[in-house]
C-alpha cells in the first residue's frame, strides 16, 4: 500500500494538470486575499471555484491511469483492489490538501490580518475547516467515481450530474426555507395614490414541521449550500449591525428557537456546525459505494 501511495504521489509531479491546478488555486487565493485586504469583502466564490479544480485533478489523474492501462499493471502484479482503491483515494486527498494550501496560504498572507480584525480566530479556523471538508468530500467523491468508471467522458458526466443534483436540491431547499412565515399586505388607494393600510398575513408557501426539517437536512447535506452557508455566516460578522457583541449575537441566533430561520444568516449560523458532519457522511458514502463497485467491476 505504501509503495502504491509513494508511486502515485511521485507520479503527480509528472502531471502538468496538477501544476496548472496549483497555479489556479494560488491565483484564486491571491484574489480572495486582495478582496479581503482592500475592501473587507469576503465571498466564498473563489473557494467555490476551487472545488471543481480539486475534483478535476482527481478525475483526470485517475482517468489517465485507466487510459494508459497502468491501473491494470497494479492489479496484475498482485496489489489487491482495496489497496489500489484506497491508495488512489489517499493520494487524491493528499493532492487536495496541497491544492487547498495553495489556496488559503496566499489568502491569509494577503488578507489574514483584515479577516482577523472582523472575526475571532477560532471562528475563522472553523469556517476554513468547513471549506476544507467540502473540498475533501468533493475530491474523495470524484476520485471514487473515477475509479468506478473507465471512460473519462462517463466519469465527467457522472460527476457533473452528481454536482448539479447536489446544487439543485440544496439550492431548491435553501430557496424554500427562505420563504418568510408572514408578509405585509398593503392596501393601496388609487384615488389618493397612496397606501392606506398594511397588515401582516401568513405566507401559505412557508414550510413548517417535518417538511421543514427535511428541507433543513437537504440544505445541510448539499456541499453547494454549505459553501453558500459559509458566505452567509461570514456576512454576519462583516456586514450585520447588532446591538450586542457579535459573538453574543451569533449565540442568540443559534439558541433562540423563536427566531425564524427563513433568514439565511440565521439558518447558516444554526447549521454551520453540522456541515462538516454531513461532508463526512458524503465521504463515508463515497468510500463505501466506491469500494463495493470497484471490487466487483471489470477492468479492461
Amino acid at each position: 500500500m505504501f509503495k502504491l501511495l509513494k508511486t502515485n504521489l511521485r507520479h503527480l509531479t509528472f502531471r502538468r494538470i496538477f501544476l496548472l491546478a496549483a497555479a489556479a488555486m494560488l491565483l484564486l487565493g491571491i484574489d480572495a486575499g486582495l478582496s479581503m485586504r482592500r475592501n473587507n469583502f469576503f465571498t466564498s466564490e473563489d473557494f467555490i471555484f476551487g472545488v471543481p479544480i480539486v475534483a478535476g485533478v482527481a478525475i483526470f489523474i485517475i482517468a489517465r491511469e485507466h487510459s494508459d492501462g497502468t491501473l491494470r499493471t497494479k492489479l496484475t502484479i498482485g496489489y489487491t483492489r482495496p489497496q489500489i482503491f484506497f491508495s488512489f483515494i489517499i493520494s487524491s486527498f493528499i493532492c487536495m490538501i496541497v491544492l487547498f494550501l495553495c489556496l488559503i496560504l496566499p489568502f491569509f498572507m494577503i488578507g489574514g490580518i483584515s479577516f482577523s480584525e472582523i472575526m475571532p480566530a477560532g471562528k475563522i479556523a472553523f469556517v476554513f475547516f468547513v471549506i476544507f471538508m467540502v473540498y475533501a468530500a468533493a475530491c474523495i467523491g470524484s476520485a471514487a467515481i473515477a475509479l468506478c468508471f473507465s471512460r473519462l467522458v462517463v466519469i465527467i458526466a457522472v460527476t457533473v450530474l452528481a454536482a448539479l443534483t447536489m446544487a439543485g436540491v440544496g439550492g431548491s431547499a435553501a430557496r424554500r426555507l427562505s420563504y418568510p412565515a408572514t408578509f405585509m399586505e398593503h392596501e393601496y388607494d388609487a384615488r389618493l395614490d397612496e397606501y392606506i393600510a398594511s397588515r401582516e398575513v401568513p405566507n401559505l408557501e412557508y414550510v413548517t414541521g417535518f417538511n421543514r426539517d427535511i428541507l433543513r437536512t437537504l440544505y445541510k447535506a448539499s456541499l453547494f449550500t454549505q459553501m453558500r452557508g459559509v458566505d452567509d455566516y461570514v456576512s454576519v460578522f462583516l456586514y450585520r449591525g447588532a446591538d450586542v457583541p457579535m459573538e453574543q449575537y451569533v449565540e442568540i441566533c443559534r439558541n433562540d428557537t423563536t427566531l425564524d430561520d427563513s433568514d439565511s444568516t440565521i439558518l447558516a449560523i444554526r447549521s454551520i456546525y453540522q456541515f462538516p458532519l454531513f461532508a463526512l457522511g458524503w465521504i463515508a458514502v463515497s468510500l463505501a459505494a466506491g469500494i463495493i463497485v470497484f471490487r466487483k467491476r471489470n477492468i479492461n
Binding site: F14, T70, T76, I77, G78, N300
Partner: peptide, 21 residues
C-alpha cells in the same frame, strides 16, 4: 493468489505505460 501474481506480469491488448514519461 496475490503472492502468485507478484511472479506474473501481463500485456493485455496494449502495453501499460505512462505516456507522459
Amino acid at each position: 493468489v496475490n503472492f502468485a501474481r507478484k511472479r506474473t506480469c501481463a500485456i493485455i491488448e496494449a502495453p501499460s505505460i505512462y505516456q507522459n514519461m
